[in-house]
Structure formats: C-alpha cells, structure tokens
Design a protein around this nucleic acid. Structure first.
Lengths: 183, 183
DNA sequence: CCTTCGTTTCAGAAATTTCTGAAATCACTG
DNA sequence: CAGTGATTTCAGAAATTTCTGAAACGAAGG
C-alpha cells in the first residue's frame, strides 16, 4: 500500500471536508483512500494507512456501508473482507444524492405532511407557509425522480446542453401557479 | 409572539434536522421561527420564543447572516435589528444551494485542480481518478450555473415537465465522451 | 468442539462543538 | 461627551461526537 504525497493530500482534504459533508473525518479519509485505490483494501490495511485504531476503521466502514458508498469484495482463499468504491463515478453520485435526499429531505417532507394532516390550527400564516414549502419540496423531489430515471448517457447530454437549456423550455409543459405567482 | 403548537412542532423539527443539514440546533430553530413569522422579529423576541440565551441568539443570527438566509429590517423609531426570511421560497432555495455549493463543492474543486497542477506524481491510477472526479464536478457545476440563470418561471416549467424531460434530450447536444464510456 | 483469525461492540477517554453569562463594544440621545 | 439601550465577543461550562482498547462475538479449519 504505497501512499504517495498526492494520495496523502487528497485523503487529508476529504478528511477535513468530512464535517461539512455530514460525515466525520475518519469516514472521509477511509472513503478517499478507497476511492484512489485500484484494488480493494481490507480493514487492517486501511487502519495502517490512516494511522487510526482498528475499531475506528470498523465503525467507519460500517457507516460507509450504511450510505451504500462501498462495495464488499472477497478474495479467494482469504477470509478477510475487502472494500472498494464503484468504478463508475456516476454511480457514486447517484448513490450520494439518493442517500442525502433520504436523510435530509424525506424526513422533513414527511413531517410537513403530518403537520398538515393535523388539520387547521387557526394559524393561517404558518399553515400557508408550510403548505407552500411542502409543494416546493414535492416539485423538487419529483424533478429529481425524473432525473434519476435517466440513463447516464442522457443525463450527461442534458448537463452539457449549456445555454440551450433555457431554449428547451419555452413553449412546453405545465406549471404550478401557486408557486410562480410570488412577486 | 404567539407560538402555536403547529409552530412549535415545526421549529423543533428544524432544530433536530439542523445537524443533518450542517447547522446546529439553535440555528435551525431560529430559522424555522423566522420562516413562520409574518413580521420581522428582533433578537430579544427570538431569545424568549426559543428559551435560549441572548448570546446564543446573537451567534445564531450571525451564522444565518453568513449564509445569506435572513434579511435585516429596521422598524422606524426602534433601534433594534429585526430579521426576516424572504417571502419568495425560490429565493431561499437558490441561496441555500449557492451557499452549499460554495462550502461543500468549491473548496474540493479548487483542491483537485491544485493537485493536478502539481504535475505528474508517478501515480497513474490516482491521477486518473482525480482528473475524472474533477471533470464530473465541473460538469455538474456548469449545469448548475445554467439552471441558476433561469428565471423562476422557466425553472418551474422545467421541473414540472415530468416524463417529457427524457424526450427533450434525444437528439440534442454534445457530451464529454470520457465520462460516458464507463461500463 | 476447541483454536485461530477476523470483525464488531461497547464503555470510557479525548476531542470538538455548542451554549451561557459576564464583560466589552457600539451607537444613538439628550 | 456622559448615559442608556442594544449587540457582540469571549472564556469557560455543558453537551455531543468521535475515537480507542479491551472484551465479546463469529465463523471456518482442524
């Protein structure tokens, strides 16, 4: 396991960014290490490469597995678990977005619907604001669901349309008036 | 400052979600309170409504200001500062996305470019992976830049196109081959 | 069914983040 | 330019999160 200065710096950066991304330093570092590694690594190797405790590695890997961000591999004749990240970066992005949505958006959408269910609370302003927020989140998650369905090639085409995007949507499609009326 | 049960629950939810969103509980609660309030609130009112210390309110508001998520208002004949959230939810979303990009994506993009600048490090796999990651992030931020330019009405149209989105991009536009080739 | 190798769990230690109260600062007003 | 009210700063306290080492667990292989 050579750790070149290039890798080192990349790994440290991911560690530092970890907290901003809602994971901790160790998890960020483990992920970075796996990301740059062409072959799968086992927990012992990771532990040594990062200079952390064995149990910390175990917890970090568990966390990454809960995010579906690592794949478990088995080497024939070796009982240890080996881990990798997917080769396909788009797969990684899709997973990341899906998981963040699940953790950061869905619980709130559920809560907003719940609050609306509880019926009129005699607080018109708050009720209106909550309804409006719920509508907006629903619109965005609906859009996301469509994007998610696209195969990667189409997604790339869409993303590289550049300024032609604006032109695409001139004459087409419906809208939700209540969300566009605000001044 | 009436705090109805509806508001209360909304505020508590935003407080709990705070940590997942990369802000802390207090900041989440302050934002939720302001979001549901039709009139601007001053720091003292916020402090009382949330049962926190005055200094905590001050720090929370500072944080929200650094995110550009609150607006400062002044009531004539009152020297205290009053705070609100924008009426327009789309403005809020735009701000949120822009700030998160600035904090979570841009530093990494900069770092990746920096690493590539340092020239060949004799570590082909890592270098290729880093270049690929940088390309992908650039594509996504480029797409984001286009979306950001759209006026809200077009954005809403685009988002509500539903399954017609897939059809839109059949025959159009270029792509970056290196990013679509992977199996 | 014991041994060995590998992994996970968990209680406490260490580090970090958040929150508070007191003091400092700032900015109008008389 | 003193006095008052509003806001910010900041050092330490409290709370939370992360990390570790030791022990528990699990699953082949003999």
């Amino acid at each position: 396991m050579k750790t070149t200065p290039l890798r080192q710096e990349f790994i440290l950066h991911f560690g530092e960014m970890g907290s901003r991304w809602g994971i901790n330093r160790t998890v960020g570092q483990i992920y970075a290490l796996l990301f740059l590694s062409s072959e799968p690594l086992n927990a012992e190797t990771i532990t040594e490469a990062l200079g952390i405790s064995r149990s910390n590695t175990s917890m970090g890997l568990k966390e990454l597995q809960s995010w579906n961000l690592v794949r478990l591999k088995h080497v024939p004749g070796d009982r240890r678990d080996y881990f990798t990240t997917p080769d396909d970066l788009w797969e990684i992005v899709r997973t990341l977005v899906a998981e963040r949505k699940k953790r950061e958006i869905d619980p709130t959408l559920t809560k907003l619907r719940e609050l609306e269910m509880q019926g009129p609370a005699g607080d018109d302003y708050a009720e209106a604001r909550i309804a409006e927020l719920r509508e907006l989140i629903e619109m965005m998650t609906g859009f996301y669901a469509e994007m998610e369905k696209l195969e990667t090639e189409r997604l790339v085409k869409l993303m590289t349309l550049g300024s032609r995007i604006a032109g695409l949507i001139d004459k087409t499609g419906g809208m939700i008036p209540s969300l566009t009326k605000r001044k």
